[in-house]
């Protein structure tokens, strides 16, 4: 049945690169999915033979269609197998799924991109998109926070972006030892130090839920409107089609209505325990 979106497509692993101690980036051949370009913020379902399937956000450049890039942290049975794949191994792929970052709604505005830990991976396609279409956006500021200097994802790339005049990069770590010359402190604490125009800013936030909550508070305190703050939520996803019910967050199916949601939509629910 051609319209059965539950059936994966086999695709080959082309390259694998270690990013951090337990984090790897996989480049997959794009297969048929390559004919359907993805949007920054969308995800694929990756299947390991006989083990299971997990949602992994796309972390590559949507402007090139030959490969699909995913950054995976080895934390469970499926992601451990994903992280251990070698070139020419085959995985099952479904996708892309979901609603991505507000790349169109953000046009003409300043962009404040706030990433925490591995949350930089789903935001990287948005950054690629902005740099490809730089004229469409105002100021672009990237705030990145992670655990320690050893946990900085895409460190080389961040350094390159930092050298560009058209994007401001601020990195901070939660703690460090003496040889780290950079900032130390949690990423939300960078927000009040910024000189920016909150009324003309669209904020995109991705990271652990607690980090996003603290960041949203800082953004609101700074005067950014609720409808201009976007988050990428994480919930259990099985089908990615809004049918299996697992990913519900209030009236939202995170897989289909998200994963990127405006804060306005989840306000009041985000701080609710066990919702």
């Amino acid at each position: 049945m051609a319209d059965d979106l539950m059936v994966p497509e086999p695709v080959r692993v082309l390259r694998r690169q270690q990013e951090l101690a337990t984090t790897w980036t996989l480049e997959l051949e794009s297969g048929q999915a390559g004919h359907r370009p993805f949007l920054p913020g969308q995800f694929n379902m990756l299947y390991i033979f006989g083990v299971g399937e997990v949602p992994i956000s796309l972390s590559g450049d949507a402007g090139q269609t030959e490969t699909l890039v995913h950054t995976v942290r080895a934390v469970g049975p499926v992601s451990n197998k994903l992280a251990a794949l070698k070139p020419m191994d085959t995985v099952g792929l479904r996708g892309p799924f979901g609603v991505g970052w507000p790349m169109t709604a953000g046009e003409g505005a300043d962009l404040l991109i706030v990433a925490g830990g591995l949350g930089l991976a789903p935001l990287r396609p948005a950054i690629y998109h902005v740099l490809r279409h730089r004229e469409r956006y105002g100021r672009v500021i990237l705030l990145y926070g992670t655990r320690s200097p050893d946990d900085i994802l895409y460190a080389g790339q961040l350094e390159e972006w930092n050298k560009r005049p058209d994007i401001e990069v601020h990195i901070t770590v939660d703690h460090a030892s003496g040889d780290w010359p950079g900032k130390i402190g949690v990423v939300p604490s960078l927000v009040p130090t910024l000189d920016f125009d909150p009324e003309d800013t669209v904020a995109m936030v991705c990271g652990p839920e607690i980090m996003m909550r603290f960041t949203v508070n800082a953004l609101r305190d700074a005067g950014v409107e609720d409808e201009s703050i976007y988050l990428s939520m994480e919930r259990n996803m099985k089908c990615a089609l809004g049918h299996c019910g697992h990913c519900q967050f209030g009236s939202t199916f995170v897989c289909k209505d998200g994963p990127v949601l405006s804060f306005e939509r989840v306000r009041g629910l985000l701080s609710l325990k066990e919702f």
Binding site: M6, F49, G50, V51, G52, E53, K238, C239, H243, C244, G245, H246
Partner: peptide, 23 residues
């Protein structure tokens, strides 16, 4: 309507199956 999926495979690791069941 909620469902989950179950993955099974044979002992030789040649075939695997995915099914959906009520959750």
């Amino acid at each position: 309507f909620c469902t989950t999926v179950e993955d099974t495979s044979d002992l030789e690791g040649v075939t695997a199956e995915r099914s959906r069941r009520w959750d």
